[in-house]
Simulated scan of single mutants.
Amino acid sequence: MKNLSTVQKALTEETNNVVFISSESCSICHVDEPKARKLAEDYNISFHHMDIMHEPRLAGFFEVLTVPAVLVYHDGKEIARQARFIDFKSLEKLLQQLPKDSKATDYQNVFT
């Protein structure tokens, strides 16, 4: 498990990140964490597992009110969030579509 400062640094340095927030007393978290980790590994995306009981500041920083929570970041910005009931099919679809690099999007080409 990683601490908050390590994950904050990764969010600024790495293009894509998946943050999984759990609690040691959450049985669903123990089931969902390996699934989320595998998806991140399958798409070569950095995975960060954090326990809210070991680092209570997580709740405020990530604005998480329930666990498990999966947050997806691209270029340091949160682009998706799921909590309590994780839809792994939609999570996988999102991870498939994430750009692998952090080049700026040319919106002129997108909207023409």
Rank of each mutant, 00 (worst) to 15 (best):
K2I: 01
K2F: 13
K2H: 15
K2A: 06
N3S: 03
L4M: 02
S5H: 14
S5V: 08
V7S: 06
L11N: 00
E13M: 09
E14G: 09
E14C: 14
N17P: 04
V18M: 04
V18R: 06
V19L: 01
V19R: 08
S22K: 14
S23G: 14
S25C: 09
S25A: 09
S25V: 10
S25H: 09
S27W: 13
I28L: 14
H30T: 10
V31G: 05
D32E: 11
E33Q: 13
P34I: 02
K35R: 15
K38L: 02
K38Y: 02
L39R: 11
E41R: 14
E41G: 04
Y43T: 00
I45E: 04
F47L: 00
F47C: 04
H48Y: 10
H49W: 09
M50E: 04
M50T: 03
D51A: 00
I52T: 07
I52Q: 05
I52S: 10
I52Y: 12
M53F: 13
P56T: 07
P56K: 06
L58R: 10
L58T: 09
G60P: 05
E63S: 14
E63C: 12
E63I: 12
V64E: 01
L65S: 14
L65M: 15
V67D: 06
V67Y: 04
V67F: 06
V67Q: 00
P68Q: 08
P68L: 01
V70M: 08
Y73P: 06
Y73G: 03
G76I: 04
K77N: 14
E78Y: 01
Q82A: 01
Q82K: 01
Q82H: 06
R84Q: 10
L94G: 02
Q96D: 04
L98W: 06
P99V: 02
P99Y: 00
K100I: 02
D101Y: 02
A104Q: 11
A104M: 13
Y107V: 14
V110R: 01
V110W: 05
T112L: 14
